[in-house]
Amino acid sequence: MATTEELCEAFADWRARSNGNPRLSKMVKGWDRVIHFTTTDTDQGFTMRVQDQLLSALVVGYEDQPDVIVTGTSEDLCDMFWGDLNPSEKYMSGEIALAGAQQDVMRIDAISMVAFLDQ
């Protein structure tokens, strides 16, 4: 199980790489959303915002009404943020679940792809 600190550290790395990626910046233009992350093993909740083409810092706990909810184990979410895990593979195997509109899900996937492939 990953601790809150580990998750926040992993997210900080993901955020830095995502915000520094001009292609991704263009991809999230006009896409201001609230995303909740839920860990299934540690029952923790986190909130991330995408605003003005930038990912916010990760907030511990749920804030506001989410547009997308990402659910997975703390280990999987941590590995996803570090880019060590193919999120699609986990999604296709049902280990990471997403709830939200299809277009929003695609954008979340695009952000996670940046971390995984380091593009």
């Binding site: 991809m27 695609m106 954008r107 996937d109 792809m113």
Partner: peptide, 23 residues
Amino acid sequence: RFIYGTAREGALPPQLARLNSRA
């Protein structure tokens, strides 16, 4: 989206998982 997901999973060539600027 199915083809995309399958390509991202590694069951189709990665070229099929390319996204444009509108995701």
